[in-house]
Nucleic acid binder design. Structure first.
Lengths: 135, 135
DNA sequence: CTCAGTGCAAACTATTTGCAGATTT
DNA sequence: AAATCTGCAAATAGTTTGCACTGAG
């Protein structure tokens, strides 16, 4: 359950932390901006400060509970780290984000890094475009 | 020459524009942050305001003369658009950036987009890590 | 001469931080 | 009780904008 993840991260189990993690775990939507999380909580009558949201997100990111993304645009986006790496496709009209994983690309990245004497630590691949309507 | 590119973009040929473009065209370094460009010009006794640097970079980006990147971290990075698409490897220690291009990855991206009914407009692939010393 | 461009300072947006009081353990 | 956490407001960093003046065409 939520609580244990928080505890294992060396953090006290507090309301804001429980609620933020719960939101990320149980929402259909997977990607949230900080302000978005903040408003989401407020709308559920959970009182938090935006500063706390940012602090918690930073701590969760450091603890590896969540992942922080720097997509195009001004604000960062967070998602639960479910342990399975994936990349993203971002719909520039609707803002919708979907995930994908491609073994060939993953492999090539490793090879390219190796060819360049580059120790690969992480990578970010994002496709920007638009989902075509299916009907 | 510089001037014509600026003119073709529908912009007047002014000192700040000429100098910013020249810097990007002639520097060994290919990637610059806005503040970095600003200080680079000041150090050459070219007086500009930081606001002008931002405005010019925005206009050049809109005109397709340069490309704006959102790497990890707080600030955007600009580089001349030499017309050849490429991705980046960023050394997280030194900040050094090198470019690469891989046809296999490019192809896979197109295929993946197609499979998802996604009209691909642009993409961003960045590898983060560290260059290993060669000696 | 006209309109776009510039510098400055003020405004903004996203995010961070100091601090005193509140909570977790 | 001790240490961490929180909310608030103030501070930052990067970037943008309003405005009166300057400069390109």
């Amino acid at each position: 359950m939520d609580q244990s993840d928080i505890k294992e991260a060396g953090l006290k189990v507090t309301k804001p932390r429980i609620e933020i993690l719960k939101l990320l775990e149980t929402s259909e939507k997977q990607h949230f901006g900080a302000e978005e999380i903040y408003h989401e909580l407020l709308s559920k009558d959970i009182k938090v400060g935006i500063a706390t949201v940012y602090r918690v997100l930073t701590q969760f990111t450091a603890a590896g509970l969540i992942i922080k993304h720097n997509f195009e645009g001004d604000q960062c986006v967070f998602e639960l780290d479910r342990g399975e790496h994936h990349d993203h496709m971002v719909d520039m009209k609707s803002g919708k984000i979907i995930e994908f994983y491609d073994e060939i690309i993953e492999q090539r990245q490793k090879e390219i890094a190796k060819e360049h004497g580059f120790e690969l630590m992480e990578h970010s691949l994002t496709l920007y475009g638009e989902f075509k309507d299916k009907g």
